[in-house]
Design a binder for these strands. Structure first.
Lengths: 252, 252
DNA sequence: CAGTGGTCTAGACCACCCC
DNA sequence: GGGTGGTCTAGACCACTGA
């Protein structure tokens, strides 16, 4: 029992569970505990460090949060990696803020139909020639008539009945679907490319001089990997600016 | 004691701490516990729910992880918000992967100097006319001579001595600085805009037909908010594509 | 079915904050 | 100094996993 409080007097002021957590992390980093293998059980660690189970569990929670291990009831603490990936966090109130669509824009629908979309927009999304609900529209600054971008939204057929409610309210379409069908976006994949502005969009946005556009495509996925909505926004290049802020998480 | 296990028999199979956590979250959402106020103490909650302190602490940990409250030793559990911001996580091994610079590129330095940068690159960064270490270069595909983008890197004067080590190794500059000065990036702010390719860059990249470029600027901040490095990369628009994947965190 | 991690109890002492 | 949350102990029962 002499070293129960060793952490405080010797190395400064670390708590027991932190010292143990750091030691275990060191062992993983040094390959003493191999990736793919299983850590000693809680009981064994209690013995080795002469401490209570709760303390060991707190130490293991550190490793879990940092991404080193995964714990499975009945199975053990599995070592996932010796070099966990950094996690950078994007804080948002809603996905709308992924772009600046938050509250200051409105969406004007030009056309709604049910058809097979052009391939370029659904590359690597829908395996075949399924029909999607296709909404063409224009996004404007609220209370002004200044256009921001030309928009196409594709909705998976399973949720196509949302078409009836597109004119009401002001929120984003993906959000209306979330509410109506009680589903949740689990992942978003966004890509940004440069294209030439389609004729149709150029006309509406009154851009005759510069036909370069920034195309931002976002795919909204459910937990099972299903793409339930794809949005494609085309911005005049001369007005495009996109900022994102990533904060490093934890202290890894 | 009749309801110690009530969570299991009545509502399905939730654990006590989850039920309590959900109840507390409900109260915050409904405004029963106001934002800015302080939650009942652990002891009071133990009494109300007739349970042990550990169980209450586990419930409060749920709320903490979800961003509803912040706990301060000696002060209490402060309600931060009734609608916590969603957290979308960007998984990366390193920040290099924020772009696809991982391992398949090399950086050729054309010029290194110490000067006051043009304002356009440091808008809202350095309050004044401080001198920065300015590195001009070109990023190429590894083992090929295909240029990817034209690069400018600005290094805060405090870390300018990194200049001596720029030619060695292959990693990103920010990483060399992290190692040499034992500091850690805490946040990255990235913005993407469309510009015309500067003459200099256009010549090097042999782009005479299309002078539109995508400019990606990244500011690397320390925990105290200091910008220690700014990188500006200009890509020929016709080859530019940027994909990011955001995963919703937790089950909020 | 033996062993693992998950949950929970009922205590205790401590560091820290605020009065 | 009184009260808060943070850490820690020494037990217990349970759910789940895998041989």
């Amino acid at each position: 029992m002499t070293n129960v409080r060793a952490g405080k007097s010797e190395t400064g002021k670390l708590h027991q569970y932190m010292e143990i957590g750091n030691e275990l992390r060191r062992r993983i980093t040094l390959g003493q505990y191999l990736v793919g293998s299983i850590l000693p059980t809680e009981g064994m660690l209690c013995e080795e460090f002469t401490t209570s189970r709760h303390t060991i569990r707190e130490a293991l929670r550190m490793l879990t949060d940092a991404g080193f291990i995964e714990r499975r009831q009945g199975s053990g603490s599995h070592v996932l990696t010796a070099v966990p990936s950094q996690r950078y966090v994007h804080d948002m109130w809603s996905l709308d803020q992924l772009f600046q669509y938050a509250v200051d824009t409105r969406f004007i629908i030009n056309d709604v139909k049910f058809a097979v979309p052009e391939n370029s927009m659904l590359s690597d999304v829908s395996g075949g020639k399924a029909e999607w609900l296709i909404v063409h529209g224009l996004r404007l600054e609220r209370d002004e008539d200044i256009p921001i971008c030309f928009s196409i939204v594709l909705v998976n057929r399973d949720y196509a009945s949302i078409a009836e409610e597109l004119e009401t309210g002001s929120g984003a379409i993906y959000r209306k679907i979330e509410d109506k069908f009680d589903i949740k976006v689990s992942q978003v994949i966004q890509d940004i490319t440069i294209t030439t502005m389609p004729q149709r969009a150029a006309l509406v946005l009154d851009k005759t001089t510069l036909d370069v556009a920034v195309q931002v495509r976002r795919r909204y996925l459910l937990a099972d990997g299903t793409v339930f909505l794809v949005s494609v926004n085309q911005h005049p290049a001369d007005e495009f600016s996109y900022t994102m802020q990533l904060r490093r998480e934890g202290e890894n």
